[in-house]
Simulated scan of single mutants.
Amino acid sequence: MARTGLYKSEVKKARDAVMAQGRHPSVDAVRVALGNTGSKSTIHKYLKELEMEDGGIADRKTSISEALHDLVARLAVQLEEEANARIGEVQTQSTEKERQLNASIAALNAANEVLSDKLSAAEARTQSEVAAHARTAESLQRETITRHTLEQQVADLKERLVENDAHRQSLEAKHIHAREALEHYRESVKEQRDQDIRRHEHQVQQLQGEIRHLQQSLVHKQNEITGLNQDGARLITELSQAQKSIYDLQSTERQHISEIESLRVTTGRIPLLESDSELKNTAIAELKRQLNEVSDTNLGLHGQIQTLQLELAKSTSVVETQQKMFARLDEHLSKGTEKI
C-alpha cells in the first residue's frame, strides 16, 4: 500500500543506501529500502530529480542491463499509473451507479411505505364501512320487522275501527229508534190526554154520577202516565249512555287515526334507510376497487426494486472482477520486474 507524505530526502537516503550495497537504485529497490511504502510514480519522479541534480544520466556510464531495468521500471510505473487511473475511473462510475441505485431503491422503498400506509388506511376504511354496512343492515332488518309489526297493528286497528264504526252505527240506529219511540209516546200521551179532556168536558154534565168512576180511571191513567214517564226517563238515561259511548268511540277513532298517521311516517322512513344502504354498498365497492389498484401498484414497485437490486449485484460483481484482474496484473508486473 502506498504511503502518503513521502519526502524527497527519504528517497535520496534510500537510493544512497542501495548504491552503497552495490546495486542499481531502481524504483523497486528504492521502494524496498523505504519499507515497501510510497507510490512508485513518486519515487520515480524523485529519482529523476536526484539524477538531474547529480549531473544527469549522460555523465555516467550505465550498462545495458541497467538501462533495460530502468526502462522496465518506467514502463511498470506508467502501467501502474494507467491501471490506477482506470481503476479509479471504474470505481468512480461504480460508486456513482451504486449511489443512484441506492437512491432509486430508497425512493421506491419510501413510495412503497406510502402505498402501504394508504393500503392500511384503505383497509381500515373498508373495515369501518363494512361494519357500518352491517349495522345499517341490522337496523334495516329491525326496521323491516318493525314495519311488518306496525302493518299488522294497522290492519288490526283497521278491523277494530270497522267494528267500532259498525257498533257506532248500531248505537246511532238504536238512538234514533229510541228518539222516535219517545216522540211517538209523547204524541200518543198528548193525544190521549186531549181526548180525555174533551171527553171529560163533553160528558161532565151528563156523567155526574160517574165522576167517582172517572176519577178512579183518571188516577189509573195518571199511574200509567207516571210509569210511561219513568220509561221515558229510563230511555233518556239509556240515550245519554249511548251518546257517551258514541263520544268514547269517536275519541278512540281519533286516537287510532293518529296512530295510523304515526305508522305512515315510520313506514315512509324505510325507503330512506334502503337508499342509505345502497349508497354505502356503492362506497364499499369503490373502496375495494381502490384497494385492488393499490395492491397492483405495490406489486409493480416490488418488481422494480428486485430488478434494481439485481442490477446493483451485477455491477458490484463486475467491479470486484476488474479489481481482481488489476491486482493479478500488478502482481505479474511486480514478479517480472524482480526477475529482471
Rank of each mutant, 00 (worst) to 15 (best):
K244V: 12
E98F: 02
S277W: 04
K280V: 06
R254P: 07
R125L: 08
T4Q: 07
Q192E: 08
K244G: 10
D59T: 12
A283F: 09
E224K: 02
A83Y: 03
T126K: 03
K190F: 00
L101T: 10
I64S: 02
E51H: 08
Q304R: 04
R160K: 12
E183L: 12
V32P: 00
K158R: 10
T4I: 09
I87D: 04
T92R: 11
A124D: 11
E238W: 05
D156L: 06
D117G: 10
L308D: 10
G56H: 13
V265G: 00
D117W: 00
H69D: 08
P25I: 10
Q322C: 05
A85M: 09
T267A: 13
Y46K: 05
F326W: 05
I211N: 14
H200D: 12
V90S: 10
A178W: 12
I260V: 04
S120F: 00
I225M: 07
T149P: 00
H302Q: 14
S258V: 11
I236D: 13
L171V: 15
E224M: 00
V318Q: 08
R198V: 06
R125D: 14
I257H: 11
S240Y: 11
N112T: 12
V77E: 05
T282R: 14
P25M: 11
T282A: 15
M325Y: 03
K12G: 02
S65L: 02
T307W: 01
A313V: 07
A29C: 03
R86M: 11
L79N: 06
T307I: 01
Q192L: 04
G55V: 03
I246Q: 09
S63R: 03
Q152W: 02
N292F: 05
D330Y: 05
V204Q: 14
T92L: 08
Q152L: 06
G22T: 13
N223V: 05
R147N: 12
R86E: 15
Q306N: 13
L108E: 12
D165H: 05
S240I: 08
K13Q: 11
E51N: 10
N112I: 03
S170E: 15
I340R: 07
R74S: 14
Y7S: 15
M52G: 12
F326C: 05
T266G: 11
L34W: 02
R269G: 09
H213L: 15
Q127S: 10
Q203E: 15
V162K: 07
K8P: 00
T282M: 12
A106Q: 15
V11E: 07
L218R: 07
